[in-house]
Simulated scan of single mutants.
Amino acid sequence: MDRAKILVIDDDPVCTGVLLAMLGDDYQVTTANSGIGGIDLLESITPDLIFLDISMPQVNGYQVLKYLQGDSEKAAIPVVVISTLVEESDQEFAKKLGASDYVTKPILPADIQSKLDEYLPN
């Protein structure tokens, strides 16, 4: 059985490392350390789930969400935002731009597992 493909787009190496440690054994994980890098990867891969940071230089997570919504095939990919932005308005804006869900940092393994259970087929 093929392992689900997960794309992590986050400029924080600690967050990326934690996610890789949590997901690497069970999923095919690809990482990008910038919004631009994430968009570049999305030109050649179609992940089953994306974990996306919002606060990144140059191209932020909101811009990545807008990019995804501009492509009918990519718009269907579930996107879980993982961010230090904790205001309800930030969460609402991300969801308005197409995010499926929102988790605040620091990330907890139980939060990540619940999103995997919710958005990836068993």
Rank of each mutant, 00 (worst) to 15 (best):
M1Y: 06
M1F: 04
M1Q: 10
D2G: 05
A4S: 13
K5Y: 05
I6P: 00
V8M: 01
V8E: 00
I9V: 15
D10F: 01
D12E: 14
P13D: 06
C15M: 11
T16M: 13
G17E: 09
V18L: 14
L19A: 04
L19D: 01
A21L: 12
L23F: 01
L23A: 02
L23C: 02
D25H: 11
D26G: 12
Y27T: 07
Q28N: 14
Q28T: 07
Q28G: 04
V29K: 00
T31E: 10
A32E: 03
S34I: 06
G35A: 10
I36Q: 14
I36W: 03
G37Y: 02
G38S: 12
I39W: 02
I39P: 00
I39A: 01
L41F: 06
S44G: 02
I45H: 04
T46D: 03
T46G: 02
T46A: 10
P47N: 11
D48I: 03
L49N: 00
L49K: 02
I50L: 07
L52Q: 04
D53K: 03
I54N: 02
I54C: 03
S55M: 14
S55I: 05
M56K: 06
M56Q: 08
M56C: 07
P57E: 11
Q58C: 04
V59I: 15
V59P: 03
N60G: 09
Y62L: 09
Q63N: 05
Q63G: 02
V64D: 00
V64K: 01
V64C: 04
V64F: 01
K66F: 00
Y67G: 01
Y67I: 01
Y67D: 06
L68W: 06
L68E: 06
D71E: 12
S72R: 14
E73L: 13
A75I: 06
A76N: 14
I77L: 07
I77P: 01
V79K: 11
V80T: 14
V80C: 12
V80G: 05
V81W: 05
I82P: 00
T84W: 05
T84F: 05
L85V: 03
V86S: 15
V86D: 14
E87D: 14
E88K: 14
S89C: 03
S89A: 15
D90Y: 12
D90M: 03
Q91F: 01
F93V: 02
A94Q: 07
K96W: 03
K96D: 08
L97H: 08
L97E: 12
G98R: 09
G98F: 04
G98K: 09
A99D: 08
D101M: 08
Y102W: 10
K105F: 08
P106I: 07
P106F: 06
P106R: 11
I107R: 06
L108E: 13
A110C: 04
A110H: 09
D111E: 13
I112F: 08
I112L: 10
Q113N: 13
Q113D: 12
S114D: 10
S114Q: 13
S114F: 01
K115N: 10
D117H: 11
Y119S: 08
Y119H: 14
Y119I: 06
L120D: 05
P121N: 13
P121E: 12
N122T: 10
